[in-house]
Design a protein around this nucleic acid. Structure first.
Lengths: 147, 147
DNA sequence: AGAGCTAAGTTTGACATTTGAACTCAAGTG
DNA sequence: CACTTGAGTTCAAATGTCAAACTTAGCTCT
């Protein structure tokens, strides 16, 4: 039982992350982009998000270099825009997969419809909390140290 | 470039998770609880959340069995309530740590103030995306299969 | 060249949520 | 018994969200 947390809000990555990722539309947009749905109207059709909100959130995601906006042209079609994963976006893969797994397990109570594999070996890929030896840990095994 | 995602919204754990975790206050409340700050007014002092919002979010978190509300009594003090992690809440550890790491790296651009260790061996604990052999994978190594 | 279509937005005004401040209420304490 | 404290509720004002209508630029068709 602590009365205060050991890390100040300004020094906490989770707090900073919450300002962007703590929004249901942001998470749903990112889901689409991870699945390769990258155009304004395609995203809108998928998740039924209001246009103004989608425009606003995409702008934010681009600002934070989670997505980048690129013009592209399909053969025989006019120029359009695609919102692709930028560096910070690609590195969200662990957050996204951990969240998806948790949601499947505790909110859907069903095995995930989408399973991810190492495309080189064909083995299933997993998110794990491990020590240096590779042994899996749970919350109770952890200890915090401060820098 | 896909026009639609391979998984329907209703079948997606991430979409369900977004309905709860897609809220900045929920993430900040959970941060506090993970750090052992578990009382209404203590949480409020830490993160400056409006009372009405805190009451509302705690209620939701209890409904979804992420937290549970317990009366307890400190010696020489009156009865109070604590919001502790429930089953689904403990299993959020990977989501929380992955999010914290990402925030430290891409939004703070600094090493995390809090580092987590395996308390049995003293080794640092890490969140990893791995194949069955334990080799680390990145987004580009992944392939999706559908159930 | 002009009319029409389409992707990607912006604007609008109604509706819902959030906010900070004030209030409540029950259980101890001096 | 008056006072404090933890854990909320209630309230009006500010802010955010929504669906529908509008805008704009670049093709395409004739």
């Amino acid at each position: 039982m602590n009365r205060t947390s050991p890390v100040k809000l300004d020094d906490c990555g989770l707090v900073k992350a919450a300002e962007i990722l703590g929004d249901k539309w942001v998470l749903m947009i990112l889901r689409e982009v991870f699945y390769g749905v990258v155009r304004f109207d395609d995203i809108r059709n998928e998740i039924a998000i209001p246009r103004a909100i989608l425009a606003d959130r995409l702008k934010k995601l681009v600002e934070f270099q989670i997505l980048r906006k690129r013009a592209y042209q399909e053969p025989g079609s006019r120029k359009r825009f695609a919102y692709q994963l930028d560096v910070a976006g690609m590195e969200l893969v662990k957050v996204m997969l951990a969240t998806m797994e948790w949601g499947d397990r505790f909110l859907r109570n069903q095995p995930s419809k989408a399973v991810f594999f190492d495309q080189h070996t064909g083995e299933p890929a997993e998110i794990k909390l491990v020590n240096q030896a590779g042994a899996e840990l749970s919350l109770a095994d952890l200890q915090v140290k401060l820098n």
